[in-house]
C-alpha cells in the first residue's frame, strides 16, 4: 500500500499576530499511507491543513508534494498537483446542483469533455448519484459531507486531507464515510484523517500523530501513541 515519500512538511509554523497557532511541525507521509491527526480543539489541526493546502499566503517552514516545493503556489495549483482537502464545515457551491458542484473541478483540470460522466462516477462512489439534480441545501448533513468528498476526489488526488469529515454524524453514518475513505485509499490515495471520533481514527489509521497547542507531541502506531501519558494528559477533561 505505501510507497515513497509523498508529502514532506519541514518546520511548518503559523502565527496569527502574536499568537503561535502552529510551531515546528515536521511530517513525512508516504504515498498511499493512512494517517490520523488528532488533538484537542484549537490545537492547530485545521491551521496545519491550511498551510499545506495554500490557504495562507505565508507561513514558516516549507512543504513539498512528490518532491515539488509547494511554497508560494496558490491552492488551485496545489489541487491540480494532486492535493485535495475537505473543509471542516462543508463549503458547497450553493447555487449549483450536486452534479455541477462536482463538475467544476473537472472543467478546470482539462477534463471538460467528459466532466459529466466523471462527476457521476464520483457521485456514485459516495452514493449520491440519485441526488445529482438537487441543490446542496436539499441534502442532509451526511450527504453534504459526501458531496464535499465527491468534489475533493474528482481530481483523483494523491493525497486527501479530510478535516473532521464525520463530525456530528451517527454511528452508521460514520461507518459509511469510513468505508468510503477505505475504498479510496485502496485505490492508492493517501489520506490524512483529522477526527475527534476516536473509534474512527483508530480503526482507520496506520499511523497517528497528535497536536497539542500547535506542536506535534507524538507520532507512531495508534495503539502506542494513545498509550503515551502525555497524549492521555492532553485529552483529560475532554473525554
Amino acid at each position: 500500500m505505501s510507497g515513497g515519500i509523498l508529502l514532506r512538511a519541514e518546520r511548518v509554523g503559523k502565527r496569527f499576530g502574536g499568537f503561535v497557532a502552529l510551531q515546528d511541525i515536521d511530517l513525512e507521509l508516504r504515498a498511499g499511507e493512512r494517517l490520523g491527526l488528532i488533538g484537542p480543539n484549537g490545537s492547530g489541526k485545521s491551521t496545519f491543513v491550511n498551510c499545506i493546502s495554500g490557504d495562507f499566503a505565508a507561513h514558516d517552514g516549507q512543504v513539498t508534494l512528490g518532491g515539488q516545493k509547494l511554497d508560494g503556489l496558490k491552492p488551485h495549483r496545489r489541487a491540480r498537483l494532486g492535493l485535495a482537502r475537505t473543509f471542516q464545515l462543508p463549503q458547497p457551491f450553493t447555487s449549483l446542483t450536486v452534479l455541477e458542484n462536482v463538475r467544476v473541478p473537472l472543467l478546470f483540470a482539462g477534463e471538460a469533455a467528459n466532466a459529466t460522466r466523471r462527476a457521476m462516477e464520483c457521485l456514485e462512489q459516495v452514493e449520491l448519484a440519485a441526488k445529482a439534480d438537487k441543490l446542496p441545501r436539499e441534502l442532509t448533513q451526511v450527504e453534504q459531507r459526501r458531496l464535499e468528498l465527491a468534489r475533493a476526489i474528482a481530481l483523483r488526488p494523491q493525497l486527501l486531507i479530510a478535516d473532521e469529515a464525520m463530525a456530528g454524524l451517527s454511528h452508521a453514518e460514520v461507518d459509511q464515510i469510513l468505508a468510503l475513505l477505505r475504498r479510496l485509499n485502496a485505490a492508492g490515495t493517501a489520506v490524512i484523517m483529522i477526527e475527534h471520533i476516536m473509534r474512527a481514527v483508530t480503526e482507520f489509521s496506520e499511523r497517528l500523530i497528535v497536536f497539542v497547542a500547535g506542536r506535534k507531541i507524538a507520532d507512531g502506531a495508534p495503539r502506542e501513541v494513545l498509550a503515551l501519558p502525555e497524549v492521555e494528559g492532553a485529552y483529560l477533561g475532554r473525554q
Partner: peptide, 18 residues
C-alpha cells in the same frame, strides 16, 4: 461555471482547482 463557483464560495473554488 467558474465565476458562479467564485460567487458561491471563493475559497472552495480555489481548493478544487479553479
Amino acid at each position: 461555471r467558474g465565476l458562479q463557483a467564485i460567487r458561491d464560495n471563493e475559497r472552495a473554488a480555489e481548493a478544487v482547482g479553479v
